[in-house]
Write a protein that binds this DNA or RNA. Sequence first.
DNA 1: TATAAATAGGATAAAATTATCCGAAATAAA
DNA 2: TTTATTTCGGATAATTTTATCCTATTTATA
Lengths: 144, 144
Amino acid sequence: MFSKACEYGIKACIFIAINSYEGKRVSPKEIAEEINSPQAFTAKILQALVRHNIIESVKGAYGGFEVSKNEIKHIKLAQIVKAIDGDSIYNGCGLGLEKCDENHPCPVHDKFKGVRDELKYMLENTSLEELALNIKSGASFLKA
Amino acid sequence: MFSKACEYGIKACIFIAINSYEGKRVSPKEIAEEINSPQAFTAKILQALVRHNIIESVKGAYGGFEVSKNEIKHIKLAQIVKAIDGDSIYNGCGLGLEKCDENHPCPVHDKFKGVRDELKYMLENTSLEELALNIKSGASFLKA
DNA sequence: TATAAATAGGATAAAATTATCCGAAATAAA
DNA sequence: TTTATTTCGGATAATTTTATCCTATTTATA
Ligand code: FES
Ligand code: FES
């Protein structure tokens, strides 16, 4: 469904958000340990998220990754997914036709569109805030 | 969403079904042309579908791929997807945890499960027959 | 200013997916 | 029985995704 990079990106954002609530910056090392991902690869993904203005980085001593406390509730899963995997999951054809086109639909178009739109709605309406709070309360987990 | 192999597999099955209605067997060459896919790669996927008893092959002159006319209405998209991509799309964790577990859910579990289940329902309730008829009637297309 | 601590980013490498090629085996028809 | 046709299956290659390593750059503090 999502790429590995995207899975890591989502989990990283959640962990960063939790720490940002407490004013703490975190390093790729801490993040990778907490979400059970390869450290250097995770660092690359973090760079991409910074370039897309989803999280912020501070270089040098006492630096690390953070996300503006006020932004956490406004950041939606859809932004993270789009930044890493692009938006073909929102509007691409389920059978790989060059584009999903009502006027030239693939055989599964009608049925696929419903699922795809529901996924899109879910991602657009799920905030980093609720995911982070869910982890903090112990209701969900970032790794096995 | 689906792998390229799976996309080709689904489209190939639809084209084979259409021809089987008319008692015609088709070759990887014809299939690849009709669904706009690489021929040799498509042939590999057809082999896998044969091994999974979804379609049948007949070797030698006047051979080719076919699907039993009576089976077409009973073959569901879910079987094809499962044969090629496995079933992680039906029960895997959206964030890549080792397994999707109600008792140890990832942060998106509750929201993701709904979408995943709807996708599963759609695949399990869409038959090769309806997809093939849709193509035959000109309501949908296998390539751009 | 010097030093230590961090992220940024380029160069590779490993693994998985996608794709190609060719000979073997099977089969129908001449 | 020979020949032409066609799928099967192994080997290999290209591409994309995932992952690692190393150096440069930035920055707070001593
Ligand atoms: S054309 Fe294939 S999903 Fe719309
Ligand atoms: S645990 Fe992640 S989707 Fe169920």
